[in-house]
């Protein structure tokens, strides 16, 4: 329990360091989610596979780059605890990417579908 409380506090203090960025991202995500929530379910369904793809790519990039970005390297991962933690960090990066990519792609794909529908209707006329 103590360790969980400690980790929550570490995350909180880290968040305070990047507060403007976090607030900006939160507002962006809220706007995306609100706009995408008005789209039909089909748009969300079609957006999921590419969003998952983007998340996986982000996770792989995070896995490869986080050690270097923290002045270390993949070669310094010496036992399973290192690997498990790095996988956790990469998974968090993937989840964050999914949280943004899914509504954003739902919006994008729905707009394209609407445009295609309008184009089809014009051609039929």
């Amino acid at each position: 329990m103590y360790e969980i409380w400690l980790v929550l506090n570490i995350l909180w203090e880290l968040a305070l360091d990047a507060l403007p960025v976090i607030i900006g991202l939160a507002l962006l995500w809220a706007a995306l989610a609100w706009a995408a929530s008005r789209r039909p379910f089909d748009a969300w369904r079609r957006a999921l596979p590419p969003a998952l793809g983007a998340a996986i790519v982000a996770g792989v990039i995070a896995f490869a780059l986080v050690p270097t970005a923290t002045r270390s390297s993949l070669s310094e991962l010496r036992y399973w605890v290192d690997w498990a933690n790095l996988v956790g960090i990469a998974a968090a990066a993937a989840a964050l990417t999914l949280a943004f990519a899914w509504p954003a792609l739902a919006l994008l794909l729905d707009k394209r579908a609407a445009a295609a529908t309008r184009l089809g209707a014009t051609a039929t006329r």
Binding site: W12, E13, L14, D17, S72, E76, L77, Y79, D82, N85
Partner: peptide, 21 residues
């Protein structure tokens, strides 16, 4: 007693936030 990237990451990035808490 195991060389560890996570131990490094803690020292490099996580212990100061813990200290502030």
């Amino acid at each position: 007693l195991q060389d560890s990237y996570m131990a490094w990451l803690m020292k490099y990035r996580m212990l100061k936030p813990a200290y502030l808490a």
